[in-house]
Simulated scan of single mutants.
Amino acid sequence: MTSSIPSRLLVTGARGQLGTEVVAAATAAGLTYAAHGSRELDITDVDAVTATVADFGRAADEAGQSAVLINAAAYTAVDAAESDRDAAYAVNATGPQNLARACAACGVRLIHVSTDYVFPGDGRRPYEIDDPTGPRSVYGASKLAGEQAVLASLAGAQVVRTAWVWGTTGANFVKTMAALAASRPTVDVVDDQRGSPTYAADLAAGLLELAGSDVPGGVLHATNAGETTWYEFARAIFAELGEDPGRVHPTTSDKFLRPAPRPAYSVLSGAAWAAAGLNPLRPWRVALADAMARSADAFRAR
């Protein structure tokens, strides 16, 4: 693998948890980029997408620059998707297809972010990129449809699955635990769902590395290394907050019934990522400690 930094970047979903970090990483790297949140660019609007990507590709061509689009836009309300199927499919399937077709027409490279929810969640070892999929929720099914649309519409497109993403922007598990640590004497957290907590800033750095590489198109997995349960993750968060981890009590998923089923096992194998010559993301526990040390105020309840 050869690696360089892409000279021009387009980010969709740029105001979300991951997109914000991609933009921050692009800024730090000195990239020329355009960043669009859903208010600036509705990826379900085919005409708007076609025009935006065409303008982006044209500007890159005129400047003699490489052009990469990272799509971090997604409908992520997992439970709401069960009763809002059309909206979930519009953003998670039709939108990515619009982007892929526009990129194909303009010669722009596309990196599309997907999820562990495309798998059934009944595995016993980390899911490889070519393991059979089998989503059990509308959210997961819509994301799988998006993957398929992207790969079918654009030769060389890359799909990057990730899991359990958290960061300084938006609502996430770390912030929820911090709020509960400040407001409740004890917290019950499920101990029968296993995955790999992934720090959005680390994932963003990995996506930029991929964007600057010559890795062939296809599917990759990128999460922070290691695995844990939500219960163990919560205990680690309490510890980093200086709180007693013993205040976190284990429970089971049947005590927290939700409209959409959660995967019991969501660990994704990073073997293909490493085999492509990309740097593996650091261990999740190291990332948590570092993020808390650097950005404690972003996670603490106010």
Rank of each mutant, 00 (worst) to 15 (best):
M1D: 02
M1L: 09
T2Q: 15
T2A: 12
S7Q: 12
T12E: 13
G16Y: 05
L18F: 08
L18T: 03
T20Q: 14
V22H: 00
T27L: 10
L31M: 13
G37Y: 12
I43L: 06
V49E: 09
A51P: 03
A51S: 12
G57K: 13
R58S: 15
D61Q: 10
V68F: 02
I70E: 11
I70A: 04
A77T: 05
A77C: 11
V78L: 10
V78M: 03
S83R: 04
N92A: 07
T94Y: 03
Q97Y: 10
A102V: 08
A104I: 05
V108Q: 14
V108F: 15
R109D: 10
L110W: 08
I111V: 05
I111Q: 14
S114M: 05
T115R: 00
V118S: 00
G121M: 08
G123K: 12
D130R: 12
D131V: 00
P132D: 09
R136N: 12
Y139L: 08
A141S: 14
G146C: 06
E147Y: 04
V150G: 05
L154C: 03
A155E: 15
A157P: 06
Q158E: 14
T162H: 07
T168P: 10
V174M: 02
K175W: 00
A181S: 14
R184N: 10
T186M: 12
D188I: 05
D188C: 06
D188F: 13
D191G: 06
T198Q: 05
Y199I: 06
A205C: 14
E209I: 07
E209H: 04
A211Q: 03
G212I: 08
G218W: 05
V219A: 05
E227A: 15
E227Y: 14
E227T: 11
Y231K: 13
I237E: 01
G242F: 14
E243V: 13
H249V: 12
S253D: 06
F256V: 03
F256C: 01
P259I: 00
G277V: 10
P283E: 09
P283I: 00
W284T: 00
W284V: 00
A287Y: 08
A293F: 02
A296T: 07
A296Y: 15
